[in-house]
Amino acid sequence: MRRKPSLVKIAQRLILSMPYIIEAMKLNIVNYSSLARLLKEDMERLSGRKLGEGSVKIAVLRAVKSLLEEYPPPERLSRALRGSELRVVEGLSVLSVAMHEGDKLLEGLSQVEKAKFVQFIQGFSAFTVVAEESVASELLSRVSSRNVLQYLREQAAIILTGPPDILVTPGVVSHLAMSLSSRGINLTEVLSSYRDVIFVVSRSDVGRAVEVIRNLLEVLERSAS
């Protein structure tokens, strides 16, 4: 018979499903009695038994201690983003096609000259190209319309180029993405290329997205001085 996970493991699973709680934990601003009350019903459901508030709180505290040991200290994240450069490329489109149309996209890309921005992503369900609108439009003409899964125009890429530490520091992309999502900004695509972290957003969200990231970088610079 398969054993049910311990209360600590259950608490860890629930906390990991709430990234905003994890960020608050890192800042040591969580009321753990309130967190235990929040998780109690789900912990009872997953454990299959009634639980007292005391046992839930103990499990939560042990789960938090274990989780915090896995995360890098805040100053390491600050160091990984400090001094980053920010650029914006507008006038982009995002084209996703069925897998068997990928060769046509590659052939089309090989004939593109002087494209200012092209990103090609191969997944398990689709090929996706992020490129300036003229390039994406040309590629679109090469594939059957029934195999076009997505074609989004009026997109923009926000490119953050960080120091070498950005390559080896966990949590950089998630920290940036959470900051953007907290402002209701949808990320069409999230890409990376060496020290570049690239967020593709709708052109209508560019101003707010740049403001969020610049504010984050300025706070990190001030905290370092």
Rank of each mutant, 00 (worst) to 15 (best):
M43W: 14
P74E: 11
L105Q: 06
G83S: 02
E53P: 00
E101C: 07
E107G: 14
L67R: 02
Q122C: 12
F124A: 15
K104T: 12
V97G: 01
F120M: 15
F124C: 09
N31I: 06
K65L: 09
A63Q: 09
A115E: 09
R76G: 05
F120G: 09
G48Q: 05
A59S: 07
K57R: 15
P72Y: 08
A36G: 12
G52Q: 09
K57L: 13
L68W: 01
Q122S: 15
L67G: 09
A59R: 00
L35G: 07
A98C: 01
R76V: 12
P74D: 10
L95H: 04
V118A: 11
E107N: 13
V118L: 13
A59I: 02
Y32D: 07
L105V: 10
E69M: 06
R62G: 01
A36L: 13
R82E: 06
V94K: 05
R82M: 06
V30G: 11
G48R: 05
R62K: 12
L27N: 15
S93P: 01
E85L: 03
D42A: 11
N28D: 15
G52R: 11
Q122V: 15
E113Q: 14
K50F: 01
V88N: 06
R45E: 07
E85G: 00
K26W: 00
D42V: 02
Y32G: 03
V112S: 13
V94L: 08
S93L: 03
M99T: 13
R45W: 04
G52W: 07
M43L: 12
P73H: 06
E41V: 13
L106A: 05
S33A: 13
E53M: 05
Y71M: 15
V56S: 06
R45L: 11
S110T: 04
P74T: 11
S34K: 12
L81Y: 07
